[in-house]
Design a protein around this nucleic acid. Sequence first.
DNA 1: AAATTTAATGAACAAGGTTCAGAGGGCAAA
DNA 2: TTTGCCCTCTGAACCTTGTTCATTAAATTT
Lengths: 204, 204
Amino acid sequence: MGIAERREKEKIELRALVLSAAKKLFVTKGIEHTTIRNIAEAIDYSVGTVYVYFKDKNAIFHALHSQGFNELGQQLALLMAVENPMERVKALGRVYINFAKANADMYSLMFSQPAPIDYLEEEHADEWKEGVLAFNVLKGTLAQCIEQGYFKGHTLEPLTYMFWSAVHGMCALYISERAKGVNLTDPNTIVERGYEEFLKIIGE
Amino acid sequence: MGIAERREKEKIELRALVLSAAKKLFVTKGIEHTTIRNIAEAIDYSVGTVYVYFKDKNAIFHALHSQGFNELGQQLALLMAVENPMERVKALGRVYINFAKANADMYSLMFSQPAPIDYLEEEHADEWKEGVLAFNVLKGTLAQCIEQGYFKGHTLEPLTYMFWSAVHGMCALYISERAKGVNLTDPNTIVERGYEEFLKIIGE
DNA sequence: AAATTTAATGAACAAGGTTCAGAGGGCAAA
DNA sequence: TTTGCCCTCTGAACCTTGTTCATTAAATTT
């Protein structure tokens, strides 16, 4: 059955091709300004072909969305090698920030409102696997910190949420350019400097 | 000159009518899924009329955007009455969170990526007045806290950015429903509980 | 009453998402 | 080899949306 296999492989490859072209376009022109025709042209296939591999534009978006979370998740997972949990939380934040800044468009794609929600609502509601995974890595690490006597008097879940929010908030404001609008002395490093402040505060 | 005045008043009123219809639609159906025709129908005017009052859809968006920031700004400004700066920062966060939760759609409209940027880039770049104002209220208050001996060893600007980010991040994640996806025990109160954790941490 | 200014209209256009009947090429059975 | 089936790929065609503009109609001024 070599032929069927080859065909299957070709299908997977073409699907991946669509995805990579879409990613490049989404990232450079923005999702709204990327047309299916653009994507088709970029890979030298017709419009219809794109629809053979994806139900609609939203499905393309969602595929990339997952991809982004997987990449981020992998990077965060690597830090499980750091023994000291307090060091690990700190590192988690840094890696997260680096990811967000290095993949700014991917990041805003991952967290931008409209599209993913549409998709999530349909039926894939509570199965946002990648996100849950990343959240639990952080939660687990903070749990260990608490065990070791850090964060006395704190409650795990809200603490985790707050930590994630602080880091996410800094990245989001940076990426949405709101930081620039506000006339900072050095907008480019504000996330890192903000994070340092955060670490100072949680380090007692 | 009573006639000219009346006309002027009518123009302003119709403009406001467009705006309020647009707001309602943006908020219920989302910006992308609201069409100019929808707005026109809602107010029983023709499509063309909408364009008499607004250059394009983006201009409508921007007007609402400003409106949102003005409302938020006003609520925050009220807190200047609180003497103690440390109490004031805490209150600023609470009011901000209440605003975000009570006006969830308006908030996501205010901070959602695409549209405002388009507009900002054109020429209104560094004149994002409302945002700067709100940021400076927070910054000023934190400056007073530092004067009074709080936040030793911290730098004002990154500290302000971090504070804003933490609160914004919690609101943003809550509103984008990312909080739900992550299986929290009580998603509805997570922002408030997260904020309490934050206050605990900054209160040493 | 006529002329002028102004606001409102909606048909028309361009561009984008999506569909679907059909072309074309490989593959297996005859 | 030839025939017919099965898939993939195609792109014209449809519908919706943002946007424009010549035209209509009403109000105001002369």
